[in-house]
Protein backbone atom coordinates (compact mmCIF):
# COMPACT_ATOMS: atom_id res chain seq x y z
CA UNK A 1 0.00 0.00 0.00
CA UNK A 2 2.71 2.36 1.02
CA UNK A 3 4.63 1.58 -2.16
CA UNK A 4 1.68 2.54 -4.35
CA UNK A 5 1.40 5.93 -2.72
CA UNK A 6 5.11 6.44 -3.30
CA UNK A 7 4.67 5.79 -6.99
CA UNK A 8 1.65 8.08 -7.45
CA UNK A 9 3.52 10.87 -5.72
CA UNK A 10 6.36 10.65 -8.20
CA UNK A 11 5.65 13.66 -10.33
CA UNK A 12 7.92 16.45 -11.55
CA UNK A 13 9.12 18.61 -8.65
CA UNK A 14 7.65 21.76 -10.13
CA UNK A 15 4.33 20.79 -11.66
CA UNK A 16 1.51 23.18 -12.28
CA UNK A 17 -1.76 21.29 -12.54
CA UNK A 18 -5.28 21.78 -11.31
CA UNK A 19 -4.42 21.34 -7.63
CA UNK A 20 -1.54 23.79 -7.80
CA UNK A 21 -3.80 26.32 -9.42
CA UNK A 22 -6.35 25.79 -6.67
CA UNK A 23 -3.64 26.51 -4.06
CA UNK A 24 -3.13 29.90 -5.66
CA UNK A 25 -6.74 30.87 -6.32
CA UNK A 26 -8.53 29.46 -3.28
CA UNK A 27 -7.19 32.03 -0.79
CA UNK A 28 -8.29 34.91 -3.01
CA UNK A 29 -11.94 34.22 -2.41
CA UNK A 30 -13.30 31.05 -0.81
CA UNK A 31 -10.55 30.64 1.74
CA UNK A 32 -9.41 34.24 2.06
CA UNK A 33 -7.15 34.67 5.08
CA UNK A 34 -8.78 37.97 6.12
CA UNK A 35 -12.45 37.73 5.23
CA UNK A 36 -12.96 33.99 5.75
CA UNK A 37 -10.30 32.88 8.23
CA UNK A 38 -10.37 36.32 9.90
CA UNK A 39 -6.59 36.39 10.42
CA UNK A 40 -4.23 39.35 10.11
CA UNK A 41 -6.99 41.91 10.67
CA UNK A 42 -4.83 44.15 12.87
CA UNK A 43 -2.40 45.09 10.12
CA UNK A 44 -5.27 45.34 7.64
CA UNK A 45 -6.64 48.18 9.77
CA UNK A 46 -3.35 49.94 10.25
CA UNK A 47 -1.79 50.17 6.80
CA UNK A 48 -4.83 50.78 4.62
CA UNK A 49 -5.02 54.57 4.87
CA UNK A 50 -3.15 55.01 1.59
CA UNK A 51 -3.08 52.77 -1.48
CA UNK A 52 0.67 52.79 -1.97
CA UNK A 53 1.21 51.75 1.66
CA UNK A 54 -1.26 48.88 1.28
CA UNK A 55 0.37 47.64 -1.92
CA UNK A 56 3.87 47.64 -0.47
CA UNK A 57 2.60 45.90 2.67
CA UNK A 58 0.75 43.32 0.53
CA UNK A 59 3.89 42.55 -1.47
CA UNK A 60 5.95 42.27 1.71
CA UNK A 61 3.52 39.79 3.27
CA UNK A 62 3.35 37.81 0.01
CA UNK A 63 7.12 37.43 -0.05
CA UNK A 64 7.22 36.43 3.60
CA UNK A 65 4.40 33.85 3.41
CA UNK A 66 5.76 32.34 0.18
CA UNK A 67 9.36 32.00 1.29
CA UNK A 68 8.67 31.03 4.89
CA UNK A 69 6.43 28.26 3.57
CA UNK A 70 9.16 27.19 1.17
CA UNK A 71 11.93 27.14 3.78
CA UNK A 72 9.80 25.44 6.41
CA UNK A 73 8.72 22.81 3.93
CA UNK A 74 12.33 22.16 2.89
CA UNK A 75 13.30 21.72 6.53
CA UNK A 76 10.12 19.94 7.65
CA UNK A 77 11.76 16.54 8.06
CA UNK A 78 14.70 17.95 10.03
CA UNK A 79 12.97 20.36 12.39
CA UNK A 80 12.95 18.83 15.90
CA UNK A 81 9.34 18.50 17.03
CA UNK A 82 10.02 20.04 20.46
CA UNK A 83 11.15 23.38 19.06
CA UNK A 84 8.97 23.38 15.93
CA UNK A 85 7.28 26.72 16.60
CA UNK A 86 10.48 28.49 17.56
CA UNK A 87 12.17 27.37 14.37
CA UNK A 88 9.20 28.65 12.36
CA UNK A 89 9.41 31.95 14.18
CA UNK A 90 13.10 32.28 13.40
CA UNK A 91 12.42 31.66 9.72
CA UNK A 92 9.64 34.26 9.68
CA UNK A 93 11.66 36.84 11.62
CA UNK A 94 14.62 36.29 9.33
CA UNK A 95 12.57 36.88 6.19
CA UNK A 96 10.78 39.91 7.62
CA UNK A 97 14.12 41.47 8.55
CA UNK A 98 15.44 40.86 5.05
CA UNK A 99 12.33 42.45 3.51
CA UNK A 100 12.61 45.42 5.86
CA UNK A 101 16.30 45.98 5.11
CA UNK A 102 15.66 46.01 1.37
CA UNK A 103 12.64 48.26 1.71
CA UNK A 104 14.66 50.70 3.80
CA UNK A 105 17.35 50.73 1.12
CA UNK A 106 15.15 51.05 -1.96
CA UNK A 107 11.99 52.82 -0.83
CA UNK A 108 12.84 54.85 2.22
CA UNK A 109 9.72 57.10 2.40
CA UNK A 110 7.36 54.10 2.35
CA UNK A 111 9.52 52.32 4.92
CA UNK A 112 9.25 55.40 7.09
CA UNK A 113 5.45 55.47 6.75
CA UNK A 114 4.93 51.78 7.41
CA UNK A 115 7.25 52.12 10.42
CA UNK A 116 6.57 49.30 12.86
CA UNK A 117 4.05 47.46 10.72
CA UNK A 118 6.70 45.82 8.54
CA UNK A 119 8.30 44.39 11.68
CA UNK A 120 4.90 43.28 12.91
CA UNK A 121 4.51 40.91 9.95
CA UNK A 122 6.37 38.52 12.26
CA UNK A 123 3.31 38.36 14.48
CA UNK A 124 0.84 38.13 11.60
CA UNK A 125 -1.24 34.99 12.24
CA UNK A 126 -1.54 34.22 8.53
CA UNK A 127 2.16 33.47 8.20
CA UNK A 128 2.51 31.07 11.10
CA UNK A 129 -0.96 29.63 10.41
CA UNK A 130 0.16 28.57 6.93
CA UNK A 131 3.40 27.10 8.23
CA UNK A 132 1.59 24.95 10.79
CA UNK A 133 -1.36 24.02 8.62
CA UNK A 134 0.36 23.50 5.29
CA UNK A 135 4.12 23.75 5.02
CA UNK A 136 4.85 21.23 7.79
CA UNK A 137 2.96 18.54 5.84
CA UNK A 138 3.55 19.37 2.18
CA UNK A 139 6.30 19.46 -0.40
CA UNK A 140 8.26 22.66 -1.04
CA UNK A 141 6.82 23.67 -4.40
CA UNK A 142 3.22 23.33 -3.25
CA UNK A 143 3.99 25.07 0.01
CA UNK A 144 5.52 27.93 -1.92
CA UNK A 145 2.38 28.27 -4.04
CA UNK A 146 0.16 28.06 -0.97
CA UNK A 147 2.15 30.86 0.68
CA UNK A 148 2.02 32.97 -2.45
CA UNK A 149 -1.74 32.43 -2.74
CA UNK A 150 -2.43 33.33 0.88
CA UNK A 151 -0.20 36.37 0.74
CA UNK A 152 -2.00 37.44 -2.41
CA UNK A 153 -5.40 36.89 -0.79
CA UNK A 154 -4.28 39.18 2.03
CA UNK A 155 -2.92 41.78 -0.39
CA UNK A 156 -6.14 41.86 -2.43
CA UNK A 157 -8.27 42.70 0.61
CA UNK A 158 -5.74 45.33 1.72
CA UNK A 159 -5.83 47.01 -1.67
CA UNK A 160 -9.65 47.02 -1.80
CA UNK A 161 -9.94 48.49 1.69
CA UNK A 162 -7.21 51.05 1.02
CA UNK A 163 -8.82 52.06 -2.28
CA UNK A 164 -12.12 52.84 -0.52
CA UNK A 165 -10.49 54.52 2.47
CA UNK A 166 -8.12 56.72 0.51
CA UNK A 167 -10.73 57.69 -2.07
CA UNK A 168 -13.38 58.75 0.45
CA UNK A 169 -11.06 59.77 3.27
CA UNK A 170 -8.65 61.95 1.32
CA UNK A 171 -10.33 62.21 -2.07
CA UNK A 172 -7.17 60.85 -3.65
CA UNK A 173 -5.66 57.70 -5.12
CA UNK A 174 -1.90 57.15 -4.89
CA UNK A 175 -1.74 60.61 -3.25
CA UNK A 176 -3.21 62.18 -6.39
CA UNK A 177 -6.40 64.08 -5.56
CA UNK A 178 -9.16 63.04 -7.93
CA UNK A 179 -12.44 63.88 -6.24
CA UNK A 180 -13.63 66.76 -4.12
CA UNK A 181 -13.09 70.50 -4.39
CA UNK A 182 -9.29 70.25 -4.61
CA UNK A 183 -9.07 67.65 -7.39
CA UNK A 184 -5.67 68.20 -8.98
CA UNK A 185 -6.60 67.77 -12.63
CA UNK A 186 -9.25 70.48 -12.28
CA UNK A 187 -7.05 73.00 -10.45
CA UNK A 188 -6.08 76.10 -12.44
CA UNK A 189 -8.59 75.20 -15.13
CA UNK A 190 -12.18 76.24 -15.59
CA UNK A 191 -13.16 72.58 -15.40
CA UNK A 192 -15.31 71.47 -12.52
CA UNK A 193 -13.80 68.42 -10.85
CA UNK A 194 -15.51 65.09 -10.55
CA UNK A 195 -17.75 64.96 -7.42
CA UNK A 196 -16.55 68.49 -6.66
CA UNK A 197 -19.15 68.82 -3.88
CA UNK A 198 -17.69 65.92 -1.91
CA UNK A 199 -15.82 66.89 1.24
CA UNK A 200 -13.31 64.15 2.18
CA UNK A 201 -14.56 62.40 5.29
CA UNK A 202 -11.81 62.20 7.86
CA UNK A 203 -13.51 59.27 9.59
CA UNK A 204 -12.45 57.05 6.68
CA UNK A 205 -8.80 57.61 7.57
CA UNK A 206 -9.30 56.49 11.16
CA UNK A 207 -8.98 52.84 12.16
CA UNK A 208 -12.72 52.20 12.83
CA UNK A 209 -13.52 52.93 9.19
CA UNK A 210 -11.34 50.00 8.15
CA UNK A 211 -13.47 47.83 10.43
CA UNK A 212 -16.67 49.05 8.74
CA UNK A 213 -15.28 48.57 5.25
CA UNK A 214 -14.01 45.11 6.12
CA UNK A 215 -17.37 44.19 7.65
CA UNK A 216 -19.22 45.29 4.53
CA UNK A 217 -16.78 43.31 2.37
CA UNK A 218 -17.36 40.15 4.43
CA UNK A 219 -21.11 40.68 4.26
CA UNK A 220 -21.05 41.13 0.46
CA UNK A 221 -18.84 38.09 0.01
CA UNK A 222 -21.11 35.87 2.10
CA UNK A 223 -24.25 37.07 0.37
CA UNK A 224 -22.72 35.99 -2.90
CA UNK A 225 -21.15 32.71 -1.70
CA UNK A 226 -23.75 31.18 0.61
CA UNK A 227 -21.57 28.23 1.60
CA UNK A 228 -19.16 30.54 3.42
CA UNK A 229 -21.83 31.61 5.89
CA UNK A 230 -21.35 28.77 8.34
CA UNK A 231 -17.57 28.39 7.95
CA UNK A 232 -16.50 30.80 10.64
Amino acid sequence: MADIIEITEKEPAIAFGKEEKKLLTDPINENNPITVQVLGVCSALAVTTLLNKAIVMGIAVMLVTAFSNLFTSLLRNYIPKQIRMIVQLVIIAFLVTVVELFLKAYNYPIWKELSVFIGLIITNCIVMGRLEAFAMANKPWRSFLDGLGNGFGYAVILVIVAFIRELFGKGSLFNYKIIGPTAEYALNTSQIGWLHWYVPNNLMILAPAAMFVLGVLIWLQRTKYKKLVDIS
Partner: peptide
Protein backbone atom coordinates in the same frame (compact mmCIF):
# COMPACT_ATOMS: atom_id res chain seq x y z
CA UNK B 1 17.99 19.73 19.10
CA UNK B 2 20.85 21.88 20.35
CA UNK B 3 22.88 21.13 17.23
CA UNK B 4 19.97 22.14 14.98
CA UNK B 5 19.39 25.34 16.93
CA UNK B 6 23.05 26.30 16.84
CA UNK B 7 23.46 25.71 13.12
CA UNK B 8 20.26 27.58 12.32
CA UNK B 9 21.13 30.54 14.52
CA UNK B 10 24.63 30.85 13.07
CA UNK B 11 23.39 30.75 9.48
CA UNK B 12 20.60 33.27 10.10
CA UNK B 13 22.85 35.61 12.06
CA UNK B 14 25.57 35.43 9.42
CA UNK B 15 23.25 36.21 6.51
CA UNK B 16 21.55 39.08 8.36
CA UNK B 17 24.87 40.57 9.46
CA UNK B 18 26.08 40.44 5.88
CA UNK B 19 22.95 42.17 4.61
CA UNK B 20 22.97 44.85 7.29
CA UNK B 21 26.56 45.83 6.66
CA UNK B 22 26.12 45.58 2.90
CA UNK B 23 23.09 47.87 2.81
CA UNK B 24 24.33 50.27 5.49
CA UNK B 25 25.77 52.88 3.08
CA UNK B 26 22.48 53.06 1.16
CA UNK B 27 20.51 53.35 4.39
Amino acid sequence: VIKFTLIMTVIVAFVLALLVSGLKPIH
